[in-house]
């Protein structure tokens, strides 16, 4: 989903920076508040960011015959809510843009919007929905990570189709083209990301259930979201 350096026209690059900036600024405020109010959560915040670091460095083969990588944003979204992930994702993308020539500074706004804004929010929405419907924690976490991963790549496809509409078939033609490169490739990877996120949440439940409970993640069918829905 990394749009390469210089591959978005300046007007698009600026527009995506403007779209992402409020989310990142809000995220920085939420992150500092979380650390100030709950200093003990610093370690888990670090682990969530580190999980994004690992997954976005893992380039995996896919059924389309090309390689892509997961995003790791679903875990942080479920644990700390999406605004915090906007910050963690921006740090990851900056590292890759500056040291790996992967993504870029001019495309940072667009890449942050897909991976650190839309992905986490979509994943979090699905998580709340699944929990509200009484899904087991593992099922809800899997769905969140799957949707966060896949929606990120769908947004990248839309971003590229907006910037480079096909001369003949227009925006939709280009969307089909970029979608077949990104979104289709991503489906099995999104499954992998879902499984890995479930694995980490299970390991967290086995070692640090107390803090997960504070964040509203309890094993079983009805979590905080479900309990709230019931009492209302």
């Amino acid at each position: 989903m990394h749009i390469a350096e210089g591959f978005l026209p300046p007007a698009h690059a600026i527009a995506w920076v403007a779209a992402s900036a409020p989310f990142v600024v809000h995220g920085v405020r939420q992150l500092t508040r979380e650390v100030r109010e709950h200093p003990e959560s610093t370690l888990l915040l670090g682990a969530s960011g580190a999980f994004m670091f690992v997954l976005s460095a893992l380039k995996l083969p896919s059924v389309t015959g090309s390689c892509s990588h997961p995003t790791g944003s679903g875990l942080g979204a479920v644990l700390f809510r999406p605004p915090v992930v906007a910050v963690l994702g921006t740090v990851t993308l900056l590292f890759q843009a500056l040291l790996l020539a992967h993504g870029g500074l001019t495309t940072l706004g667009a890449n942050v919007f897909s991976m650190a804004v839309v992905g986490p929010w979509a994943g979090y929405g699905v998580y709340r929905l699944a929990r509200g419907l009484g899904a087991r924690l593992e099922v809800a976490v899997f769905c969140a990570a799957f949707v966060a991963d896949l929606s990120t790549y769908c947004v990248t496809s839309v971003q590229l189709a907006l910037a480079f509409p096909d001369p003949v078939s227009g925006f939709l033609g280009a969307l089909g083209k970029f979608g077949s490169i990104f979104a289709v490739t991503q489906i099995p990877l999104a499954v992998s990301e879902g499984l890995l996120t479930v694995l980490v949440v299970r390991l967290l439940l086995q070692s640090n259930a107390g803090e997960l409970a504070r964040l509203g993640l309890q094993a079983g069918g009805r979590g905080k979201a479900g309990a709230e829905a019931v009492t209302r």
Binding site: M1, H2, I3, A4, E5, G6, F7, P9, P10, K59, P61, S62, G65, S66, C67, S68, A97, L98, L99, L100, A101, H102, G104, L105, T106, T156, L160, F164, P165, D166, P167, A174, K177, F178, I181, F182, T185, Q186
Partner: peptide, 29 residues
Amino acid sequence: FAGADAEAETAITEIDPDYRPWFSPVYEP
């Protein structure tokens, strides 16, 4: 099993052969 990101760059140059990236990475391995 090339990277999807690189394939997208190729697709861009197919759609718009005249497009030239207007900025290059600050550091390239």
